[in-house]
Computed example of a mutant assay.
Amino acid sequence: MAASTGPISLTVHGAAGRMGRRVVALGLADPDFQLVGAIDHGQSDQLGKDAGAVAGEAPAGIEISSDWPATGDKNTPQAVVDFSLPEAVDGCIAHCVQAGSPLVVATTGLSDQQKQSLSDAAASIPVVWAPSMSLAVNLSMKIAEQITAALKDVSGGLDVEILERHHRFKADAPSGTALKFGELIAGQLGESTTHVHGREGHTGARTREEIGYHAIRVGDNPGEHTIVFGMLGEKIELNVAASNRDCYASGALAAAKWLIHENKPAGLYSMFDVLGMSQD
Protein backbone atom coordinates (compact mmCIF):
# COMPACT_ATOMS: atom_id res chain seq x y z
CA MET A 1 0.00 0.00 0.00
CA ALA A 2 1.47 3.34 -1.06
CA ALA A 3 1.65 6.13 1.47
CA SER A 4 -1.08 8.76 1.18
CA THR A 5 -0.01 11.99 -0.56
CA GLY A 6 -3.37 13.78 -0.47
CA PRO A 7 -6.58 13.72 1.53
CA ILE A 8 -7.49 10.28 2.83
CA SER A 9 -10.52 8.86 1.06
CA LEU A 10 -12.87 7.89 3.86
CA THR A 11 -15.93 5.68 4.07
CA VAL A 12 -17.96 5.63 7.29
CA HIS A 13 -19.86 2.41 8.06
CA GLY A 14 -22.83 3.08 10.34
CA ALA A 15 -23.03 6.64 9.01
CA ALA A 16 -26.62 7.23 10.13
CA GLY A 17 -26.02 6.23 13.75
CA ARG A 18 -25.19 8.54 16.65
CA MET A 19 -21.46 7.88 16.41
CA GLY A 20 -21.34 7.55 12.63
CA ARG A 21 -22.81 11.02 12.25
CA ARG A 22 -20.07 12.49 14.42
CA VAL A 23 -17.39 10.69 12.41
CA VAL A 24 -18.93 12.12 9.23
CA ALA A 25 -19.10 15.62 10.72
CA LEU A 26 -15.54 15.64 12.03
CA GLY A 27 -14.24 13.99 8.85
CA LEU A 28 -15.84 16.69 6.72
CA ALA A 29 -14.25 19.39 8.89
CA ASP A 30 -10.77 17.84 8.63
CA PRO A 31 -8.81 18.70 5.44
CA ASP A 32 -6.88 15.42 5.82
CA PHE A 33 -10.04 13.53 4.81
CA GLN A 34 -12.30 13.36 1.79
CA LEU A 35 -15.59 11.59 2.45
CA VAL A 36 -16.29 9.17 -0.40
CA GLY A 37 -18.79 6.77 1.17
CA ALA A 38 -21.44 6.63 3.88
CA ILE A 39 -22.89 3.17 4.52
CA ASP A 40 -25.81 2.10 6.70
CA HIS A 41 -28.13 -0.89 6.92
CA GLY A 42 -30.79 -1.55 4.30
CA GLN A 43 -33.70 -0.64 6.59
CA SER A 44 -32.30 2.76 7.62
CA ASP A 45 -34.72 5.64 7.10
CA GLN A 46 -31.70 7.81 6.17
CA LEU A 47 -30.88 5.97 2.94
CA GLY A 48 -30.64 8.33 -0.01
CA LYS A 49 -30.12 11.39 2.17
CA ASP A 50 -26.97 13.48 2.08
CA ALA A 51 -24.53 12.25 4.73
CA GLY A 52 -23.42 15.75 5.64
CA ALA A 53 -26.97 16.97 6.11
CA VAL A 54 -27.87 13.92 8.24
CA ALA A 55 -24.83 14.72 10.41
CA GLY A 56 -26.08 18.28 10.88
CA GLU A 57 -23.49 19.78 8.54
CA ALA A 58 -23.54 21.32 5.05
CA PRO A 59 -24.39 18.87 2.26
CA ALA A 60 -21.39 16.72 1.39
CA GLY A 61 -22.51 15.38 -1.97
CA ILE A 62 -22.38 11.82 -0.63
CA GLU A 63 -25.63 9.93 -0.12
CA ILE A 64 -26.06 7.37 2.63
CA SER A 65 -26.33 3.98 0.96
CA SER A 66 -26.54 0.33 1.93
CA ASP A 67 -24.24 -0.57 -0.99
CA TRP A 68 -20.47 -0.52 -0.77
CA PRO A 69 -18.42 1.03 -3.58
CA ALA A 70 -17.38 -1.61 -6.10
CA THR A 71 -13.90 -3.02 -5.53
CA GLY A 72 -11.51 -1.32 -7.92
CA ASP A 73 -13.76 1.74 -8.34
CA LYS A 74 -11.96 5.08 -8.18
CA ASN A 75 -13.91 5.83 -5.00
CA THR A 76 -12.75 2.70 -3.21
CA PRO A 77 -11.80 4.16 0.18
CA GLN A 78 -8.28 4.26 1.51
CA ALA A 79 -9.76 3.85 4.99
CA VAL A 80 -13.02 2.62 6.46
CA VAL A 81 -14.20 3.64 9.94
CA ASP A 82 -16.80 1.28 11.38
CA PHE A 83 -19.12 2.61 14.07
CA SER A 84 -22.08 0.30 13.53
CA LEU A 85 -23.66 -2.66 15.35
CA PRO A 86 -22.20 -6.11 16.02
CA GLU A 87 -24.57 -7.73 13.51
CA ALA A 88 -23.27 -5.42 10.77
CA VAL A 89 -19.55 -5.84 11.40
CA ASP A 90 -19.10 -9.12 9.51
CA GLY A 91 -20.16 -7.58 6.21
CA CYS A 92 -17.87 -4.61 6.79
CA ILE A 93 -14.89 -6.87 7.46
CA ALA A 94 -15.61 -8.95 4.35
CA HIS A 95 -15.82 -5.87 2.16
CA CYS A 96 -12.59 -4.36 3.47
CA VAL A 97 -10.68 -7.60 2.94
CA GLN A 98 -12.01 -7.81 -0.62
CA ALA A 99 -11.25 -4.15 -1.36
CA GLY A 100 -7.93 -4.09 0.51
CA SER A 101 -9.12 -1.16 2.62
CA PRO A 102 -7.46 -0.36 5.95
CA LEU A 103 -10.10 -0.67 8.64
CA VAL A 104 -10.79 1.01 11.99
CA VAL A 105 -13.36 -0.91 14.04
CA ALA A 106 -14.93 1.07 16.87
CA THR A 107 -18.04 -1.10 17.28
CA THR A 108 -18.32 -2.72 20.71
CA GLY A 109 -20.04 -5.89 21.91
CA LEU A 110 -18.30 -8.12 19.37
CA SER A 111 -18.46 -11.89 19.84
CA ASP A 112 -15.37 -14.04 20.18
CA GLN A 113 -15.99 -15.28 16.65
CA GLN A 114 -16.06 -11.72 15.33
CA LYS A 115 -12.85 -10.89 17.16
CA GLN A 116 -11.30 -13.92 15.47
CA SER A 117 -12.60 -12.64 12.14
CA LEU A 118 -10.77 -9.37 12.78
CA SER A 119 -7.59 -11.29 13.50
CA ASP A 120 -8.05 -13.27 10.30
CA ALA A 121 -8.68 -10.10 8.29
CA ALA A 122 -5.51 -8.57 9.71
CA ALA A 123 -3.51 -11.16 7.79
CA SER A 124 -4.27 -9.21 4.61
CA ILE A 125 -5.19 -5.65 5.67
CA PRO A 126 -4.19 -3.31 8.51
CA VAL A 127 -6.87 -3.18 11.21
CA VAL A 128 -7.16 -0.99 14.30
CA TRP A 129 -9.59 -2.38 16.85
CA ALA A 130 -10.12 -1.18 20.40
CA PRO A 131 -13.07 -1.20 22.80
CA SER A 132 -12.70 2.57 23.10
CA MET A 133 -11.30 5.07 20.62
CA SER A 134 -10.96 7.75 23.30
CA LEU A 135 -7.38 8.91 23.73
CA ALA A 136 -8.02 9.71 27.41
CA VAL A 137 -9.50 6.25 28.06
CA ASN A 138 -6.53 4.49 26.52
CA LEU A 139 -4.08 6.59 28.50
CA SER A 140 -6.11 5.81 31.65
CA MET A 141 -5.83 2.09 30.86
CA LYS A 142 -2.05 2.39 30.94
CA ILE A 143 -2.22 4.28 34.23
CA ALA A 144 -4.49 1.57 35.67
CA GLU A 145 -1.92 -1.06 34.73
CA GLN A 146 0.81 0.92 36.45
CA ILE A 147 -1.23 1.43 39.62
CA THR A 148 -2.06 -2.29 39.78
CA ALA A 149 1.56 -3.33 39.25
CA ALA A 150 2.68 -1.02 42.05
CA LEU A 151 -0.01 -2.05 44.57
CA LYS A 152 -0.81 -5.71 43.82
CA ASP A 153 1.32 -6.96 46.72
CA VAL A 154 0.39 -4.23 49.19
CA SER A 155 -0.01 -5.34 52.80
CA GLY A 156 -3.67 -6.08 53.53
CA GLY A 157 -4.53 -6.67 49.88
CA LEU A 158 -5.78 -4.64 46.92
CA ASP A 159 -9.45 -4.54 45.92
CA VAL A 160 -10.36 -3.42 42.40
CA GLU A 161 -13.88 -2.39 41.39
CA ILE A 162 -14.89 -1.01 37.98
CA LEU A 163 -17.94 1.25 37.64
CA GLU A 164 -19.14 2.28 34.20
CA ARG A 165 -21.91 4.68 33.23
CA HIS A 166 -23.47 4.94 29.79
CA HIS A 167 -26.63 6.22 28.12
CA ARG A 168 -29.90 4.33 28.42
CA PHE A 169 -29.69 3.13 24.80
CA LYS A 170 -26.47 1.11 25.16
CA ALA A 171 -27.22 -2.53 24.42
CA ASP A 172 -24.23 -4.34 25.98
CA ALA A 173 -23.12 -4.48 29.61
CA PRO A 174 -20.61 -4.18 31.03
CA SER A 175 -19.05 -1.97 28.40
CA GLY A 176 -16.23 -3.27 26.25
CA THR A 177 -14.07 -0.56 27.78
CA ALA A 178 -14.80 -1.77 31.32
CA LEU A 179 -13.93 -5.32 30.29
CA LYS A 180 -10.67 -4.10 28.74
CA PHE A 181 -9.77 -2.27 31.95
CA GLY A 182 -10.44 -5.53 33.79
CA GLU A 183 -8.38 -7.58 31.36
CA LEU A 184 -5.37 -5.30 31.71
CA ILE A 185 -5.65 -5.17 35.50
CA ALA A 186 -6.04 -8.96 35.69
CA GLY A 187 -2.88 -9.29 33.63
CA GLN A 188 -1.03 -7.57 36.47
CA LEU A 189 -2.82 -9.38 39.31
CA GLY A 190 -2.23 -12.90 38.00
CA GLU A 191 -4.04 -15.98 36.71
CA SER A 192 -6.14 -16.53 39.85
CA THR A 193 -8.16 -13.36 39.22
CA THR A 194 -11.93 -13.81 38.98
CA HIS A 195 -14.45 -11.42 37.41
CA VAL A 196 -17.66 -10.68 39.32
CA HIS A 197 -20.51 -8.86 37.58
CA GLY A 198 -22.60 -7.08 40.18
CA ARG A 199 -23.49 -8.44 43.61
CA GLU A 200 -26.79 -9.37 45.19
CA GLY A 201 -27.88 -11.19 48.32
CA HIS A 202 -25.63 -12.81 50.90
CA THR A 203 -22.42 -12.95 48.87
CA GLY A 204 -20.01 -13.41 51.74
CA ALA A 205 -16.79 -11.50 52.20
CA ARG A 206 -15.06 -10.18 49.14
CA THR A 207 -12.13 -12.31 48.03
CA ARG A 208 -8.78 -10.77 47.15
CA GLU A 209 -8.90 -12.31 43.67
CA GLU A 210 -12.04 -10.48 42.53
CA ILE A 211 -12.47 -7.67 40.06
CA GLY A 212 -16.00 -6.31 40.39
CA TYR A 213 -17.97 -4.74 37.52
CA HIS A 214 -20.98 -2.47 37.88
CA ALA A 215 -22.93 -1.16 34.87
CA ILE A 216 -25.06 1.98 35.23
CA ARG A 217 -27.40 3.13 32.44
CA VAL A 218 -28.66 6.71 32.78
CA GLY A 219 -29.95 9.39 30.41
CA ASP A 220 -27.60 10.38 27.61
CA ASN A 221 -24.26 9.76 29.39
CA PRO A 222 -21.73 9.24 26.54
CA GLY A 223 -19.40 7.20 28.71
CA GLU A 224 -17.71 7.30 32.10
CA HIS A 225 -15.45 4.78 33.86
CA THR A 226 -14.23 4.81 37.43
CA ILE A 227 -11.63 2.31 38.61
CA VAL A 228 -11.51 2.03 42.42
CA PHE A 229 -8.29 0.68 43.95
CA GLY A 230 -9.16 -0.03 47.57
CA MET A 231 -6.67 -0.76 50.33
CA LEU A 232 -6.94 -0.86 54.10
CA GLY A 233 -6.86 2.77 55.19
CA GLU A 234 -6.79 4.44 51.78
CA LYS A 235 -7.98 4.27 48.18
CA ILE A 236 -7.32 5.58 44.69
CA GLU A 237 -10.10 6.37 42.23
CA LEU A 238 -9.17 6.73 38.58
CA ASN A 239 -11.99 8.43 36.67
CA VAL A 240 -12.22 9.13 32.96
CA ALA A 241 -15.39 10.66 31.52
CA ALA A 242 -16.56 11.89 28.13
CA SER A 243 -18.60 15.09 27.97
CA ASN A 244 -19.71 14.30 24.40
CA ARG A 245 -19.17 11.67 21.71
CA ASP A 246 -16.58 13.62 19.73
CA CYS A 247 -13.70 12.09 21.69
CA TYR A 248 -14.58 8.67 20.25
CA ALA A 249 -15.07 9.97 16.72
CA SER A 250 -11.84 11.98 16.72
CA GLY A 251 -9.94 9.00 18.13
CA ALA A 252 -11.22 6.77 15.32
CA LEU A 253 -10.19 9.35 12.71
CA ALA A 254 -6.76 9.64 14.37
CA ALA A 255 -6.42 5.86 14.03
CA ALA A 256 -7.30 6.07 10.33
CA LYS A 257 -4.69 8.79 9.80
CA TRP A 258 -2.11 6.70 11.62
CA LEU A 259 -2.76 3.67 9.40
CA ILE A 260 -2.46 5.69 6.20
CA HIS A 261 0.22 8.26 7.05
CA GLU A 262 2.44 5.63 8.71
CA ASN A 263 1.84 3.27 5.77
CA LYS A 264 1.10 0.42 8.15
CA PRO A 265 1.30 -3.13 6.78
CA ALA A 266 -1.33 -5.80 7.37
CA GLY A 267 -1.75 -6.53 11.05
CA LEU A 268 -4.01 -6.09 14.05
CA TYR A 269 -3.31 -2.88 15.93
CA SER A 270 -4.74 -1.22 19.04
CA MET A 271 -5.10 2.36 20.16
CA PHE A 272 -2.00 1.76 22.27
CA ASP A 273 -0.14 1.38 18.97
CA VAL A 274 -1.73 4.55 17.58
CA LEU A 275 -0.62 6.46 20.68
CA GLY A 276 2.86 4.92 20.74
CA MET A 277 2.25 3.25 24.11
CA SER A 278 2.60 -0.40 23.13
CA GLN A 279 5.27 -2.41 24.87
CA ASP A 280 7.72 -4.33 22.71
Rank of each mutant, 00 (worst) to 15 (best):
L232K: 11
A256R: 04
M231C: 15
I227K: 01
A242P: 00
A242S: 12
E224P: 00
R217A: 15
N221T: 05
G251M: 11
H225N: 11
S250C: 03
R217P: 01
N221F: 02
M231Q: 10
G212P: 01
C247T: 10
H225I: 07
A252F: 08
D246N: 15
A241Q: 02
S250Y: 01
N221Q: 12
W258A: 05
A255E: 03
C247H: 10
E234I: 13
N244Y: 11
A256N: 07
A241E: 02
Y248E: 15
S250V: 04
H214V: 08
S250F: 01
F229Q: 00
K257R: 10
P222W: 05
C247W: 05
G212N: 06
E234D: 12
F229I: 05
M231H: 04
C247F: 14
A254Q: 09
A252N: 13
L232W: 09
L232T: 11
V240N: 01
F229S: 02
T226D: 08
N221L: 03
F229E: 04
E224W: 06
K257T: 01
G251H: 06
A249C: 07
L232F: 11
G251R: 13
I227C: 04
G230P: 09
G233C: 13
V218Y: 13
T226E: 14
G251L: 10
K235Q: 15
G233Y: 10
V218G: 08
K257H: 03
H214F: 09
H214I: 09
N221G: 04
G223L: 03
A255I: 02
K257E: 05
A241N: 01
D246Y: 04
G223T: 00
E224F: 07
V240D: 02
G230A: 15
G251D: 03
A255P: 00
D246Q: 11
L238V: 03
Y248S: 13
A241V: 00
G251T: 07
K235A: 13
L253D: 03
E234F: 15
V228D: 15
R217C: 14
N239C: 10
H214E: 14
H225C: 09
S243L: 08
L253Q: 05
K257G: 00
A252K: 06
N244V: 05
D220I: 13
K235H: 13
R245A: 10
A252R: 06
G212E: 06
E234T: 13
G233A: 12
I216W: 05
E234H: 11
A256P: 03
